[in-house]
Simulated scan of single mutants.
Amino acid sequence: MKTAIITGTSKGIGMETALAFARAGYKVFAAMRNPDGATALKEIIQKESLPIVIIQMDVDSDESVRQSFNVIYQESGTVDVLVNNAGTERHGSIEELGLADFRAVMETNYFGVLRCIKAVIPQMRTSQSGCIINISSVAGQIANSPLSAYSASKFALESMSEALAQELKPFNIRVMIVQPGIINTEMAHKVKAEKGSSYPQVNRFGSLFEASLKNPVPPSLVAEKILEIANGQSWQLRHPVGPDASPFLGWRASLTDEQWIDFNAVDDEDWFNSVQNTFGLDVRQIS
């Protein structure tokens, strides 16, 4: 039986990924910061008798990651797949968002992934096999206000992943980046239209999320893609997921940097018109 470690599994994409891998025959170590909050996952594990072991792991902590991986290796011996899904988000203008928020996002989304990667590489390198899947976002290639802290962490994650893929390919270890669009998760619902900022982007970009979530894309769609990547043989680095992911990325790629800045710097009415003309989303009423 192959073994997978998946971080951030108490809900959303992480929980659905743990379930998908277990149902596909993997032994899954479902890592999360607070196992007491994983009521839904525990109920499904029991109901379906799934081979999932819930393990406490705080990816922000060197010691927690070290101890957790020691337990996993003692029980399993080897790890075939690592899915780095644990993540957090803070949003706001750069002026108004605190430095502590920037640090917290980078600590989890970038350094947390690095901790887990460093814990698994030696064994995978010895085994000459393995798959590391890092969950990024379209925000890993598209910088938007008010998601600057989140985007910065995902840009860093994608840059590191690209370099890591070069290092590990000679050892037959695949490194993949998954880039979800707007998915129906608790994190996405927190990006809402908010009044009171000095910067209009904070309010209207939240409206874009709210409009998109009226036609919700389930996190299980991302989980299915992650499982497909793990079970496949492809060395493709980046994998956009969701109906809006490739259109968003293609749209950004079609614009120069200066055009992108100008698009996001215009007044509300011009921005609303551009979003509606490009994506068919009317976000005025939400704002």
Score class of each variant (00 low, 15 high):
residue 102 F to R: 07
residue 127 S to D: 09
residue 145 S to H: 06
residue 131 C to L: 12
residue 99 L to N: 13
residue 137 S to G: 05
residue 135 I to E: 02
residue 113 V to D: 04
residue 147 L to V: 12
residue 116 C to S: 00
residue 134 N to C: 08
residue 99 L to W: 11
residue 134 N to K: 04
residue 107 E to P: 07
residue 82 L to I: 06
residue 120 V to K: 05
residue 142 I to M: 01
residue 91 H to W: 14
residue 142 I to P: 12
residue 116 C to Y: 02
residue 130 G to I: 03
residue 92 G to V: 08
residue 105 V to P: 05
residue 114 L to S: 15
residue 89 E to H: 07
residue 118 K to E: 14
residue 134 N to F: 05
residue 78 T to D: 15
residue 75 E to S: 14
residue 114 L to R: 13
residue 143 A to C: 13
residue 99 L to G: 15
residue 101 D to W: 06
residue 136 S to T: 08
residue 140 G to E: 03
residue 101 D to F: 11
residue 105 V to G: 01
residue 118 K to F: 06
residue 125 R to W: 10
residue 145 S to Y: 14
residue 111 F to I: 08
residue 147 L to P: 10
residue 120 V to I: 15
residue 110 Y to A: 08
residue 88 T to K: 01
residue 134 N to V: 05
residue 85 N to M: 08
residue 125 R to D: 09
residue 136 S to V: 12
residue 110 Y to P: 08
residue 104 A to Q: 12
residue 89 E to T: 02
residue 141 Q to E: 15
residue 147 L to K: 00
residue 91 H to G: 12
residue 99 L to E: 14
residue 83 V to E: 01
residue 100 A to W: 10
residue 123 Q to C: 05
residue 120 V to C: 01
residue 110 Y to L: 10
residue 103 R to P: 11
residue 110 Y to N: 07
residue 142 I to G: 11
residue 105 V to S: 09
residue 127 S to M: 08
residue 95 E to L: 14
residue 139 A to Q: 00
residue 136 S to F: 03
residue 147 L to M: 13
residue 126 T to D: 10
residue 86 A to D: 08
residue 141 Q to T: 09
residue 91 H to S: 09
residue 89 E to Y: 01
residue 109 N to V: 02
residue 73 Y to Q: 13
residue 89 E to P: 03
residue 147 L to D: 02
residue 102 F to N: 06
residue 129 S to M: 02
residue 91 H to Q: 12
residue 101 D to I: 10
residue 98 G to P: 06
residue 107 E to V: 06
residue 105 V to Q: 09
residue 142 I to D: 08
residue 130 G to K: 02
residue 146 P to E: 03
residue 95 E to M: 15
residue 76 S to K: 09
residue 132 I to K: 03
residue 102 F to A: 03
residue 136 S to I: 06
residue 91 H to D: 14
residue 131 C to F: 02
residue 129 S to N: 09
residue 129 S to H: 06
residue 97 L to E: 10
residue 141 Q to I: 05
residue 71 V to H: 12
residue 72 I to N: 13
residue 104 A to Y: 07
residue 98 G to T: 13
residue 85 N to L: 04
residue 139 A to H: 03
residue 116 C to H: 04
residue 76 S to T: 04
residue 146 P to N: 04
residue 110 Y to C: 04
residue 136 S to M: 05
residue 97 L to K: 15
residue 135 I to L: 13
residue 87 G to N: 00
residue 76 S to E: 07
residue 135 I to G: 05
residue 97 L to C: 10
